[in-house]
Amino acid sequence: MNSMRGAATYARGAGAYARVGVESGVMAASPHQLIVMLFDGAQASIRKARIHLEDGNIAEKGLAISKAMDIVNNGLLAALDREQGGEVAENLASLYDYVVRLLRAANRDNDPASLDRAAKLLDDIGSAWRQVGGGASES
């Protein structure tokens, strides 16, 4: 029984440590790095959704897809500056909307191909974002 309590305490402590690490990373990140973190988070959620789908854990699959959709809608899409970004921002908004539709279809139809298409699009956009940031100075 003591080992069970110890494991539970360790898990809570490890979770708290991870949250502090993420929060510290967010607090210290530049705007560019925050966008990269959003891409990474969406991809991680899609990977989790795929694993849960393959394991037949439909409820957890749905939660992971919902998290990915939330990151795309309330993170990546919300971060677009449509006034200054012009046509590029509008094109990204359309792509993000399409990604969300793919994720919705993957959730509704338990469709791994839709998950793969969404992940590929986010990977392509995220890679371009990383390349742009690698050569630009951040303020």
Rank of each mutant, 00 (worst) to 15 (best):
R101P: 00
A128R: 00
V22Q: 03
A44P: 00
A128D: 03
N74G: 12
G15C: 05
R117W: 04
A64C: 05
Y17I: 07
S3D: 15
A44Y: 04
I46T: 13
A78D: 09
A106T: 01
R117A: 02
G25R: 01
K48Q: 13
L103P: 05
D111Q: 14
R82W: 05
G21P: 02
A18W: 03
I46K: 11
A118K: 09
A49R: 06
G6A: 15
S114G: 04
K61S: 01
A42K: 03
A118M: 10
N2P: 08
R50T: 15
R104V: 10
G126A: 07
S45R: 01
D109N: 15
G21L: 05
D70C: 02
R82T: 12
A93C: 06
G134V: 07
L63W: 01
A11D: 11
L80F: 08
G21Y: 00
I65K: 00
A59E: 07
R5W: 01
V72A: 03
E87S: 04
D40M: 11
A113V: 12
G56Y: 02
A28E: 04
Q84G: 13
A44E: 07
S45L: 00
Y96F: 12
A68Y: 11
A128H: 03
I65M: 03
I51T: 12
I71F: 05
I51Q: 09
E83D: 13
V99C: 10
N57M: 02
L77S: 15
G86D: 10
W129F: 07
L103I: 06
A68M: 13
R82A: 06
G15V: 05
M1F: 12
A11E: 14
E54H: 03
G133R: 07
V20N: 05
D97M: 07
D81W: 04
Q84E: 11
K67W: 06
D109L: 14
I125E: 03
A29K: 01
L122E: 06
D81E: 08
L95T: 12
E83A: 06
G6K: 14
D109S: 12
I51F: 03
D116F: 02
S3R: 14
M27P: 00
S66C: 14
A119E: 13
M4L: 14
S127K: 11
L80A: 11
V99A: 10
A113N: 09
S127G: 14
L63F: 02
G133T: 09
L92W: 04
L95C: 10
N2W: 07
G85H: 11
R12A: 12
D81A: 05
A68S: 15
A106H: 01
Y98C: 08
V22F: 03
I71N: 11
H52W: 02
A119L: 09
S45T: 00
K120C: 00
Q84W: 06
D111V: 14
A89S: 15
G126D: 01
A78S: 06
K120W: 03
D97S: 12
A93M: 05
M4Y: 13
L102N: 08
A44D: 08
A79L: 07
E90W: 07
E90Y: 11
A89W: 08
S137K: 13
A16S: 10
L115Q: 12
P112Q: 10
